[in-house]
Structure formats: structure tokens, C-alpha cells
């Protein structure tokens, strides 16, 4: 099966230090990939490149079998299809609904359609009670969940979650895990990073490990 996204020989250096070296990988629809590696191993850098936020020094991207001729073209396609969530997601000043509708407003959809999609997304995530709340009043766990919904509502092909479960209490963690599993069931590809494999209830399909900028595959653990 042709992967949705194929990355070949991706390399990235900073201050003459190699951060990523010859990274190649395939992403298929519905993949739930766990990316591990110690602090500073380049996990976040890799995600930021895949989200089109950071230009690699080398590498080639193929989307749906079509190799993109240059970084400019790859970046524009990646930004259209990939959503990246920071370890501590940033919610814009405003209500939860304003935040969730941000990406839809960028697509210049009509207001009624936006409102309907926002409400739908909030109900699906059982967050409708937060709709009018100011994003700055939310707990860390709530912010993480709102950020996932804000990305999910745009129907991305790939979601990149940078340490989504870090510093979360048990309940928030459970709710977050359930949202990630739901994405996986909807055939959204997900890559989530962690500095260590953890026990839990995620349906991981693949476990990749970054060590000194080199990517290797491991047996999928349960997170």
C-alpha cells in the first residue's frame, strides 16, 4: 500500500551539530506511532520539520506517492495536512470556541458552518461545557484536550503530538488517551513523542526510537 507520506534521507544540523541524520519513514493512514528518545535526541525537531515549521538541510517528501520537487512545495502541503501540538499547547486569548474556530476561520468558511462544526467537535469531545470559557482559565489537561479538538476539527491527515501526556494528572491523562485512540480509529495518522515508553492504554501500531539523530524501529509497546 502506498504510504500517505514518505520521508527520505531527512537531515538537520544546528550550529554544525547533526541533530537528525538520514531519517526515512512512511506514514500510513491510521498509523499510531510512538516516537521515543532521550531529552535532546531530536524528537521535537523532527516533528517541527514534519509540520513544515522548520526547514531541513536535506531530505525528500512524497505525499500520496508524488515526490515534491522542493521544500517550498513540501512545506505548503505539510502545513495543509499536518497539525502539530506543542508539549504545552498555546491557546489564543479568547473563548474555547474562538480557539477551535481559528483554523476554520482561516479557511474562510461561512460562519454558520463554522459554528456547527465547532459545536459538533466540542460535543464529540465532551467539552461543550467549556465552550464559552476563556482559554486562560482552563487547567493544563483541559488546555491539552481543547488543543487536540482545535486541530482535529480541521480534519488533518497527520497529527503530531509532542509529549502530550507530560505532567498530567490521572484523569486528564485518561481523557487524552481516549481522544488519541479516537483519532486513530478515524484513520488519522498520529505520531506522539515521549522520552520513555510508558504503560497505558494506547493502540500503538509502531514504536520508533531516536538515538543520536538516527531513527530505528522497536517492538510496539503499550503506552
Amino acid at each position: 500500500m502506498t504510504p500517505w507520506l514518505n520521508i527520505q534521507n531527512l537531515g538537520f544540523s544546528r550550529d554544525k551539530r547533526k541533530i537528525l541524520e538520514s531519517i526515512s519513514m512512511d506514514i500510513h493512514p491510521g498509523d499510531l506511532t510512538l516516537l521515543t528518545g532521550h531529552n535532546g535526541s531530536g524528537k521535537t525537531t523532527l516533528l517541527r520539520i514534519m509540520a513544515g515549521l522548520l526547514k531541513p538541510d536535506s531530505g525528500r517528501f512524497s505525499l500520496e506517492g508524488k515526490t515534491q520537487p522542493n521544500w517550498h512545495r513540501s512545506r505548503s502541503l505539510l502545513r495543509r495536512n499536518v497539525c502539530y501540538l506543542h508539549q504545552r499547547p498555546y491557546l489564543f486569548d479568547g473563548s474555547v470556541s474562538d480557539n477551535i474556530s481559528y483554523g476554520l476561520r482561516c479557511q474562510k468558511l461561512d460562519m454558520r458552518q463554522i459554528e456547527a462544526r465547532v459545536m459538533d467537535a466540542l460535543v464529540n469531545a465532551s467539552l461543550e461545557h467549556l465552550s464559552g470559557r476563556n482559554s486562560r482559565e482552563l487547567s493544563g489537561g483541559e488546555q491539552q484536550r481543547v488543543a487536540i479538538v482545535r486541530a482535529q476539527v480541521l480534519n488533518p491527515r497527520l497529527m503530531l503530538l509532542d509529549e502530550p501526556l507530560a505532567n498530567m494528572d490521572k484523569q486528564s491523562r485518561r481523557q487524552c488517551l481516549s481522544m488519541i485512540n479516537q483519532l486513530h480509529r478515524k484513520q488519522v495518522s498520529v505520531i506522539l513523542t515521549s522520552h520513555e515508553p510508558q504503560q497505558g492504554e494506547l493502540d500503538i501500531t509502531r514504536h520508533l526510537h531516536l538515538y543520536q539523530g538516527i531513527l530505528s524501529q522497536k517492538e510496539p509497546p503499550q503506552i
Binding site: R48, A51, G52, L53, R79, R80, V82, C83, Y84, H86, P89, Y90, F92, Y102, G103, C106, Q107, R150, A151, L154
Partner: peptide
């Protein structure tokens, strides 16, 4: 970065 990744 958040704005860009949300399609802005």
C-alpha cells in the same frame, strides 16, 4: 507556530 500549523 500554532497559527501556521492551524492553516494561517
Amino acid at each position: 507556530e500554532t497559527a501556521l500549523t492551524l492553516g494561517a
